[in-house]
Amino acid sequence: MSAVDLSGHPGHLARRLQQAHYLLWNTLVSEQTTSPQYAVLNTLVADPGLDQRTVGERVGLDRSTIAEVVTRLTRRGLLRKARDPRDGRRSLLTVTEEGLAAHRELTARTAAMNEVFLAPLAPAEQGVFLDLLRRVADAAEGFRTGGEEARAS
């Protein structure tokens, strides 16, 4: 059996793309705040007071991962957690003033990182690339959740 050319394997390319993103994030955005942590902050800046489960669903994090991200952000003073007065089992999340300041700085740095990340592509290609990534990522949500999308085909 001969070796397979992995340059046409989407999983291999996705892993390489993730490695490049991780390197750029740590170099140009933050070594302290991870990309998933930023996604949580960003979601709560857009829609304050969501519960932890909803935030996890919106950013594509499973229950244990969102719990860990929320714990880390809360410990750093970037998020505040409060019991839902209507349902004591749920925690509602809001971004603190320090969290809002961190979000502003991270947003500017993320925009600059994205320019570097997408620089190999022409502007028209960048839009197509992002659309294709979004479509594949949206379809892949079904694999994670076991939804109909995973079984369709």
Results as ranks from 00 to 15, higher is better:
residue 2 S to T: 15
residue 4 V to T: 14
residue 16 R to W: 00
residue 16 R to C: 02
residue 20 A to H: 10
residue 21 H to W: 06
residue 21 H to Y: 05
residue 22 Y to V: 09
residue 27 T to F: 00
residue 28 L to I: 13
residue 29 V to C: 03
residue 32 Q to D: 11
residue 33 T to I: 12
residue 35 S to Y: 01
residue 39 A to T: 04
residue 43 T to A: 15
residue 43 T to I: 06
residue 43 T to L: 03
residue 45 V to M: 15
residue 48 P to I: 15
residue 52 Q to T: 15
residue 52 Q to R: 14
residue 58 R to T: 03
residue 58 R to Y: 08
residue 59 V to F: 05
residue 60 G to K: 02
residue 61 L to H: 02
residue 61 L to K: 01
residue 62 D to C: 07
residue 67 A to E: 01
residue 70 V to R: 06
residue 80 R to G: 00
residue 80 R to P: 00
residue 81 K to F: 00
residue 81 K to W: 00
residue 82 A to M: 05
residue 82 A to S: 05
residue 85 P to D: 12
residue 87 D to A: 14
residue 91 S to A: 08
residue 91 S to C: 04
residue 91 S to Y: 15
residue 92 L to T: 04
residue 95 V to S: 04
residue 95 V to Y: 03
residue 96 T to G: 07
residue 96 T to E: 10
residue 101 A to E: 15
residue 102 A to S: 13
residue 105 E to A: 14
residue 106 L to Q: 02
residue 107 T to P: 01
residue 110 T to K: 10
residue 110 T to S: 10
residue 110 T to E: 07
residue 116 V to C: 05
residue 116 V to P: 02
residue 118 L to P: 01
residue 122 A to E: 13
residue 124 A to Q: 13
residue 125 E to S: 13
residue 130 L to F: 12
residue 145 T to Y: 00
residue 147 G to D: 05
residue 150 A to S: 13
residue 151 R to A: 14
